[in-house]
Simulated scan of single mutants.
Amino acid sequence: MQGKEVLGFRMFLFSTMIAQLVITFASKFDNGIGLQMVENVPFCLELARIVMSEQSDESGTTSTLFFLFGVSSVLVGLVFYLLGRLEMGRIVYFFPSHVLVGCIGGIGVFITITAIEVATNTTFSFTPQGFNDSIVSQFNLLLPVFAFEIFLRLMMHATKGKYSLLPPVFYCLITPVFYFSLYALGVDIDDAEDAGYFFPPIKSTESAFSWSLLDIFTEIHFWNISWKAVFKAIPTMTSLTAFSLIHVPINIPAFAISTNTEPDMNAELIAHGYSNFISGIFGGLQNYMTYSNGVIYSKSNGRGKCSSLAIVALTGFIFIYGPLLCVYVPRCMAGTLLLHVGIDLFIEGVG
């Protein structure tokens, strides 16, 4: 079996692919972007702790944990579907618009913090120690992020927003420009890796095309499941389900405001029901229509089924080759993307 890093990587991408595929055909938005529900990671960690407290063998813990992930996703999907079928989508209209706009600004702050953490591989906190550990002592890692972001802002200002594809093309060029900069400055790539400018390699002993691609679908063995751990995990799964329901009533109206679209909340709830149920059947994680990625996609003039299916295909490509390619991606590319989105959303929220 491959390393756990590869399993986690592909679990994330599988859930994202399912979400994008369902949103393409079931959502009323023509520019929605699906994503694995990363906010649920703390609940997933708690489920892992519960399982590990009851089982010690690797095969058993993996079977039980994947079973819990799948059941949780199925539960989330069923609740979303029932809310949509019962036409409970109207409850979102009780959220005042200024609350939703405030949430947009808050999401912007969160994404900006994430940009710092991704670029520096640290955990940021609003304390003197947090600023020192994540910004002051790691400023060399943040410098290319700030440089790329400032340059992009200047280009957007100079072109007065005429070119919607400017940001995505710019992001794609960050990696080759970064490599060229290392070459021009005479910096060895190994030294740059040691300094933290690249993501660490994901350990894998298999080639891209092998039966290991199906590992995430073959981890559940019912005879190895600890039903005691499953029973013990019920409160956590219940909390996970309730927490999952919070995002959609906020993300969908906020995305509708940002894209000037009138949403059909019942249809979106049903779509989320389908995507989570399908993901759960295969032992996958929860997913939703993400706000921040959707805004990037919308501002890049992305819309329509063909474009959305292209995203599914690209995600599938990364599902196969991602573990081999991620080591070549500089942290500053992801950091710049997140920082740019975070600043935009914060400005939109307070503007």
Rank of each mutant, 00 (worst) to 15 (best):
I343M: 14
K232C: 12
T261C: 10
S279Q: 14
I174F: 03
T64I: 05
G283E: 01
L324H: 11
M17T: 11
N224H: 15
I189E: 14
L82G: 08
W223E: 15
C326P: 00
I318P: 12
S59Y: 15
L65F: 06
A229I: 13
L75W: 07
D191W: 14
F282H: 07
G106L: 07
S212N: 10
G105Y: 03
K160N: 09
F25A: 00
Y183T: 02
G84N: 03
C332W: 02
E54K: 15
S212L: 06
F317K: 04
L86T: 00
A48F: 00
E87N: 03
G32R: 06
G8D: 05
Y171V: 03
H272T: 02
K160D: 08
A115C: 06
D344R: 13
C306E: 12
C332K: 01
F231M: 15
E58M: 10
N132P: 02
V341P: 08
Q55N: 13
M1K: 04
V145W: 08
I281T: 08
E39L: 04
A119I: 01
F198R: 03
L143W: 13
L82A: 14
P167Y: 04
L100A: 09
G84V: 00
S204I: 12
E348C: 11
L166W: 09
V41G: 02
G32P: 06
F9Q: 07
V327C: 01
S134C: 02
V101W: 00
N293F: 05
L325F: 11
E46N: 11
G186C: 11
P263R: 07
F67G: 15
A119F: 04
S27A: 07
T123K: 13
F94Q: 11
E149T: 15
L13Y: 04
F66G: 02
H247R: 12
R90I: 01
K203G: 14
K228D: 14
A313D: 09
F198V: 01
V312H: 04
T218Q: 10
I257S: 05
R153D: 09
L324P: 00
N287F: 00
S73Q: 05
G316A: 02
V169K: 01
F29S: 13
I150S: 14
S15F: 02
Y288S: 11
P330W: 06
G349R: 08
L100C: 09
I225M: 14
S275P: 06
F69G: 14
S258P: 00
V248D: 10
N140L: 06
F209L: 09
P263A: 05
D344F: 10
S134R: 05
N132D: 05
N31H: 10
I281A: 09
R153V: 08
N260H: 06
I281L: 13
H157Y: 13
N301V: 00
